[in-house]
Every structure is written in structure tokens, then in C-alpha cells.
């Protein structure tokens, strides 16, 4: 990553957009403390997070790109493990988790091992584990992966309502339409470098685009997508 600079205020939803390999997940790992930046700083409430990494981690929630969860634990056991790590009292955990599992329609599967969950169910468990402690900053790495339509709509509304409630949300995704619909802040990446950042509408206007998709294709991807599509169709139809 090189010369990446952005900020998220309370109530902001920052869309972090870039093609595959542009450095989205690396940024996420740095933001979550899983990877240490070789240079530069991540500030939380104006202070470098390395000064109090533990306090910072208490305030964040994280949904990874692919929900790698322990397959031999049940959904409930996994959430109980995270709650214990986060020092959430058992009574609070039980009430919260029950409500969240019901809302995400997987309460009936709470005592089933994660190994038999679908990708969407795992993703929902990861979402609950990231939010059960009421974090100030929510870091979402492609959170809509594997979710069915209704769960996706619910999650989108949850993100919006959390932002309205004053949470800061960092949202990395390759899905342009979701980023465009949800985010009010935008960071556009290409090969580890930031090519645009700021308020969504203003940034698009500055770049001379009206739609995020056009900006992404021309600035970040820099590929002739129409030509690529034509090549694929030609290959499919070839005798």
C-alpha cells in the first residue's frame, strides 16, 4: 500500500473500492491490527492505534472476506467463544445472541455444527460475532458474499441504521452497485495506490463521472470490459 489516506467520522459509511489485488484486504488487515503497517499510522480518535491496540480492538467489529470459522463448533458455541474473548457477561450474551440469531433467521440452527452451514449462514455468524459487542467502528470486508437476497437487504438496512446511530463503517467490496447505494464516502484503489478519496458525490463530480461504475471501470480497472465480454462470448460460441 502506498500513500493511502482517508478518514471515517461517526455516521459515515466509507466504501473502499478496487479491483482484485488492489490492496483492499491488506488495508483491512492493517485496520484490524492483523498486519502492521511498514510506514504510516492508523489513528483512532486522533491517537495512533499502536499506542493502545487492545483498547482499539475492543472498539472495532470485523467481518472477514471469507468467514473461516471452526467447523466442529456449533454456531452458538462459536459466538459464545467470541463473547468470552470479548468479556461479554453470559446473560447479556444469551439475550443478544438469541435476538440476533432470530433476526438473521438462523436461530433454529444454533446447535448445529458450523461445518454443515451454508456460506451465507457462516457469513451471518461472522456478522453477529462482529457486532455483538456494539462496536464504534465496523470493518466489513465483502460482507454480502454468500448472503441470500433477503439477508442482503436486511444487512444493507442494518448498516444504514448503524451509521444513523453514529457508528463508523468501513466497507470494502468489489460490488460497485452496493458501494454506490450504501456509502457516503469513497476510496478508489488501483494496485495499492489511492486514486480518489472523499465524499461520494463530490469525488465522482471531480472525476467527471455521474456513475460510480464508469469511474471504476476507467480509473481503477482500466480494462475494456466490452471487449473482454465480446471475447468471452466469441469463445463460448466457437465451434
Amino acid at each position: 500500500m502506498d500513500a493511502v489516506q482517508f478518514s471515517i467520522a461517526r455516521g459515515d459509511i466509507l466504501g473502499y473500492l478496487g479491483p482484485n489485488g488492489s490492496g483492499k484486504s491488506t488495508t483491512v488487515k492493517m485496520l484490524t491490527g492483523l498486519l502492521e503497517p511498514t510506514s504510516g499510522d492508523i489513528l483512532f480518535h486522533g491517537r495512533p492505534v499502536r499506542e493502545d491496540l487492545v483498547g482499539y480492538k475492543r472498539a472495532i467489529g470485523y467481518v472477514p472476506e471469507e468467514a473461516q470459522l471452526y467447523s466442529f463448533l456449533t454456531g452458538w458455541e462459536y459466538l459464545e467463544l467470541i463473547a468470552t474473548l470479548r468479556n461479554i457477561p453470559p446473560r447479556v450474551f444469551e439475550a443478544k445472541t438469541k435476538a440476533m440469531l432470530e433476526a438473521f433467521t438462523i436461530y433454529a440452527y444454533r446447535d448445529v455444527t458450523i461445518g454443515s452451514y451454508s456460506k451465507g449462514m457462516r457469513q451471518r455468524i461472522a456478522l453477529i460475532s462482529a457486532t455483538m459487542h456494539n462496536p464504534d467502528l465496523l470493518i466489513l470486508d465483502e460482507p454480502f458474499t454468500g448472503l441470500d437476497v433477503s439477508s442482503g437487504i436486511v444487512l444493507r438496512q442494518v448498516i444504514e441504521q448503524l451509521a444513523q446511530a453514529g457508528k463508523a463503517i468501513f466497507f470494502a467490496s468489489p460490488a460497485i452497485e452496493v458501494v454506490e447505494r450504501l456509502s457516503n464516502q469513497l476510496v478508489l484503489l488501483r494496485k495499492g495506490k489511492q486514486i480518489a478519496a472523499g465524499n461520494m458525490a463530490e469525488t465522482l463530480a471531480q472525476l467527471g463521472f455521474t456513475r460510480l461504475e464508469d469511474a471504476f471501470v476507467q480509473m481503477a480497472e482500466q480494462t475494456d470490459t466490452a471487449q473482454t465480454a465480446r471475447n468471452i462470448v466469441a469463445a463460448i460460441e466457437a465451434a
Partner: peptide, 15 residues
Amino acid sequence: AALPAANWPFRLLAV
């Protein structure tokens, strides 16, 4: 190790 890739919550939260 049981699923080393799944140890990220510990890495994230272990103090």
C-alpha cells in the same frame, strides 16, 4: 492445529 485459518478471532482479540 484445527483450521489454522480460523484462528483470526484469537489473533484479533487475544491479550
